[in-house]
Amino acid sequence: MSILKPDFIKPVAIGAVIFAALAFLPSLVDSYYMSLAISVVSFAVLATAWSMFSGPTRYISLATVVFFGIGAYTVAVLGEVLPFPMVLICAGLAGTVIALLVGFSTLRLAGVYFVIFTFGLTELVRQVVSWYEVNVTREMGRYVFLDITQNDIYWQLLALFAVLLLTGFILGRSRLGFALRIIGEDETVAKHCGIDVTRVKVALFVLSALFMTLTGAIMAPRWTYIDPVIAFNPMLSFQVVIMALLGGPRRLLGPLLGVIPLTLLFEVLTANFPNHFSILLGCVFMVIVYLLPGGVVGLYEKYRAPKKRALATDQNAKSGGNAA
């Protein structure tokens, strides 16, 4: 690993400056824009975490909300018992354990079977939680009364996103990242190279799930009341997939290019056409799929990449940073 080379230090330094600047956002804008910023950063974490696993392996996972919901529920259960940092650690552990179980039992599945399984997993977890609440605690909804302000949530999400990007950046240069890219290109070849395919995939799946779980845990205090329908809403999984695919899941900052325009688009549509939201959203998706089949990054690569492949990550980091 080339930790101290300039091509590592430079992007990290630029990233650090941008994130430091973003941390001052709450003192500049009112709470409406803060809620919009929270939405952007939370989807940025989810879509980037999703792409971290699904980008290189090409497994489409619809289980995002499973981990997000587990994080939220951990806060609902432990929020008033433990200090918040401890709650986050517990949420992370819970997410990791579930992801390990799910990973080892399912990552041998391929293609559409995996998609269907992850979608079913959402329903399974939701029903298990419901069953537990109905038969054991006999209280369906849970209340989260924590003194965590909107700005606290924003800062936590921002920090989480920074850690995620750094992790992704290091990963992209590590042996594990290289192994993943080979698996993505051809799994049989990867096996013949001596890569333990399943273990690599599970490791990445767990890492990506950990960030999703933490996002759910950080967001939970915003809603005061959590029940299984609210915490495990499958719409979230689809939104994350759409955002990541629009941006381009195979680059570290690709998903961000999908998250920002789509979050703003959702906002414009909700604010101005509350009665026609779904219809307009459907039309927009059709236009996107028709005009941008390879995502925003695909468009970028079509014009730029052939000659400067080596510099792509670097350039990408810059353009993504500017857009943010």
């Binding site: 409406y32 809620s35 919009l36 609210i230 909700t270 604010a271």
Partner: peptide, 22 residues
Amino acid sequence: VEYDDRSSSEEAVRAIERLINQ
């Protein structure tokens, strides 16, 4: 001024912030 919260807590929170601040 009316919005659709799409039966989602997060949307409801955002819409109320919008009503108050915007």
